[in-house]
Design a protein around this nucleic acid. Structure first.
Lengths: 351, 351
DNA sequence: GGAAGTTGTGCAATCGTTTGCGCGTTCGTA
DNA sequence: TACGAACGCGCAAACGATTGCACAACTTCC
């Protein structure tokens, strides 16, 4: 949660009912409606003399508006729902924090729901959020496969929503430039002289994974290196998946084994590091690895990881802004934010 | 967010106003109050024939209760506030997910607020949560220092709350048995023949850090090893802090340098691993390291990390249960859950 | 000096539930 | 058979804010 700062008011302690707007009104000798207007900063009247007097009385009474009453009357909760597969991954956690902070700046609350990568749960938690009457949704769980799913339902009843980090190919979205990121990663390895470059490519339903692969392809092609399809392996997003996928790549016979590895995220990179060690390969001497997301962990690994940094802050804030525009029925266009490559010690010239 | 599953209802798409209870009542030819009772599962009437008919009509209308109206009338939001320093750390993220899931099982929502370790922010976000009229608070940010802070304020106006993971020494809390955890970690190293055992001890205001240190002390003392106070160094919880603190310890002259290191969490353990590498020390040959929390990362590090697993699930659920009991004014006692040590490759017999 | 705004405030309806009270039925039991 | 308990359901009053309408008092401008 976030929402507009309610910092000052707590002299009210102990006993008794919470003061209501009517209490403040009585104390100030005005009508409750006047109090309401005095407390509403969008209202010009809220700058008048009476208004500041009312605010002062409200403060010393420890008055705090009852959101339920306001929501009911106003027919809006000033809350947006956030759907993520899990908050346990650092990237999602960071994105969530950015979203939450952006919300607070706009006087909104953020309500989080997780799907644990379950497609059905996606619809379920989405509806759950809607049943809480959120004013809009930010989804970081979009998939490219199938037209089904929850988004059409959303679109159908006109609920404002925006996708973050991943797109379905249609809906308004705020994304990282994954193609560019993949390009930068591959380019970095090419510049270091690598020619057999493998990729732990992530799942095919995730647009961000696909974009990164595309970028890699483009970089290789541009450099006149033919893409060896056996070296581009689908995977999940987890460390386990990274480890097993990397293990497959590293098990290739000597001349075919990649000397450089681009991974779909830092998690799988960590898995790859473990696989390399298991195979008796030294990083970066025998194998270069570049991660993605530049998680705080990347810089602190025993072998600090070269990684592509994604501007999560911009993406989070962008998503909230876009949602607000949509709610006001202003036109929007999907946004793409450029990542940067952070070179560290996990990459070195090709052996 | 979580809360009771609203899975079934979505035939309502497109145009028009959302149906209200009154709509359902009209359709069913009954009074709205009857609908309310029919839909309330705690009410015995909700099992009657009319009730199931009403539910059916509600479902086919796509009716969904308006929480604002219900909250207003009921004077409770069925929402609990969760205060954490940040959701970016894996431990907090996992704890949050457990709390959220436990909430859902009880038909509650969880509203998250983060303090970023800022003492003032703690009060601010706490009040913010209260201004949202949450029914209670779970705080994972408790400190031992000073009687000030937010908790007395909470206690004073009778808001139900429980601490998780850390205690202030007084309030109802659900904790891990940190003393035992520290004991197990130290004991493990002692069993491997280590005698010069250092600790990256975490901050002095955090009860969990302190408990772990105590446990270490107890294990050493029991084993007849005198505690070398220079080897027990306060630190933060971050990788950076772990790295710099470990660096200090490893810079000690040869005979004084610890051969085993207990860390306050996996983060600082990762930092220590980096420091070891920088010092040219091999883990576990020259230095054994045991982490704490058994983050998913621990098992997947290039050198899999021996770590103390904390039952976060039990702690999360326990905290929610306890909060519920408090809200019902039933007596509660603080709870402590035992951790277990997971040995991996970062620990080996003393050199 | 009067018409046309502007500003400040009150009145009352409204948002959609929940729930105490009460009345008419039905049922079990003496 | 009759009497009290239990049940099913309607009525209407909350819960605490927001907001359209109205109107008085004051400006402003010609």
């Amino acid at each position: 949660m976030t929402g507009t700062t309610a910092t000052p008011p707590p002299p009210r302690r102990g006993t008794g009912r919470r003061p209501t707007m009517t209490d403040v009104a009585r104390e100030a000798g005005v009508n409750p409606s006047t109090v309401s207007r005095a407390l509403d900063d969008r209202h010009p009247f809220s700058r008048s003399d009476t208004a500041v007097r009312i605010k002062q009385i409200a403060a010393q009474l420890g008055y705090t508006p009852n959101p339920a009453a306001a929501n009911l009357r106003r027919q809006s909760t000033r809350t947006i729902g956030v759907v993520m597969s899990s908050i346990t991954g650092t990237v999602m956690a960071m994105l969530y924090e950015e979203i939450a902070e952006a919300c607070r700046d706009h006087g909104l609350d953020a309500l989080l729901a997780t799907t644990h990568d379950d497609l059905e749960a996606e619809t379920a938690v989405g509806r759950l959020l809607l049943s809480r009457r959120v004013d809009g949704l930010i989804l970081a769980t979009a998939r490219l496969d199938g037209p089904g799913g929850f988004l059409p339902e959303l679109a159908a009843d006109g609920t404002p929503f925006v996708l973050a980090l991943r797109t379905d190919g249609h809906s308004p979205a705020v994304l990282g430039d994954d193609r560019l990121g993949g390009y930068l990663a591959a380019r970095h390895l090419l510049d270091l002289g690598h020619r057999r470059i493998g990729m732990i490519a992530g799942p095919p339903y995730a647009s961000n994974a696909l974009g990164r692969v595309d970028g890699l392809r483009q970089a290789l092609t541009e450099a006149g290196v033919e893409v060896d399809e056996r070296l581009v392996r689908p995977s999940g997003f987890s460390m386990e998946s990274g480890e097993s996928t990397a293990a497959e790549l590293l098990a290739l016979p000597d001349g075919q084994r990649p000397t450089g590895l681009v991974t779909v995220n830092d998690n799988t990179a960590v898995g790859a590091l473990a696989a390399a060690r298991r195979h008796g390969l030294a990083v970066p001497q025998d194998l270069s690895v570049v991660g993605y997301n530049d998680t705080p962990l990347a810089a602190r690994l025993p072998i600090p990881l070269t990684s592509v940094r994604v501007p999560l802050r911009e993406i989070g804030r962008g998503a909230v802004d876009m949602l607000l525009r949509i709610r006001q029925e202003r036109p929007v266009r999907s946004l793409v934010h450029a990542p940067t490559l952070i070179p560290r010690e996990s990459t070195a010239p090709a052996p």
